[in-house]
Amino acid sequence: MDNLPTNQSINRDVGVAALFIAALRRDLMLSLRRKSELVNPLIFFLMVITLFPLGVSPEPGFLAQLAPGVLWVSALLATLLSMDSLFRSDFDDGSLEQLLLSPQPLFIVVLAKIAAHWMMTGLALTLVAPLIGVMLFLPSEGMPGLMLSLLLGTPTLSLVGAIGAALTVGLRKGGVLISLLVLPLYIPVLIFGTGAVQAAVTGLPIGGYLALLGALLALGITLAPLAVAAALRISVSG
């Protein structure tokens, strides 16, 4: 018990960057140890994509036309499904309460958790997307647009989804509810994301779409962690 005060004083000295990196490392390590959580969104992404040629038409020209939208919708659903686990395990084992009680700014911790989640889902989806684009006969001109739009758009999806995850973390049946809350908010990202891919396929400049996606991301980074922090405090205390 003697060294408790010194411990606390050491903890208070942690800088913002060190806090961010520590939280990021912890979450990355946790999710790397649970391999299924890393792989499941990717498998889901691949499976949903497979359903489209089976359900709609295997004809290459038609699939190429469909590809930007299908890729983006599947990436969006894969992110959404993985969202529920963002705070769930921390809530169950009580470490979320410790995070809320800690003197460090919750904004930074939340941002780090979302960043770790994005690296495990959004970044992985972005890296797998060209392969799936080829399977859907997406023309090679569309690939840069696809990669860049996913790279800028999926972090926004994680940020907005985290608000839904934080609001539903205290509930036992969070799964379906979170999609109801979050899906309408995903629509702008979907519109600009598919717009970028379609523009890239037809050879039009994609700078405007990417700028808009970047603006949404900037807005998300500045505002979403605030909402997530507020929502976590409400969910955990209630």
Partner: peptide, 15 residues
């Protein structure tokens, strides 16, 4: 979905 009325009100306000 949220049973406690004050929590429900706060959560929906955030949303």
């Amino acid at each position: 979905a949220i049973e406690s009325e004050s929590t429900a009100a706060q959560s929906t306000a955030v949303l």
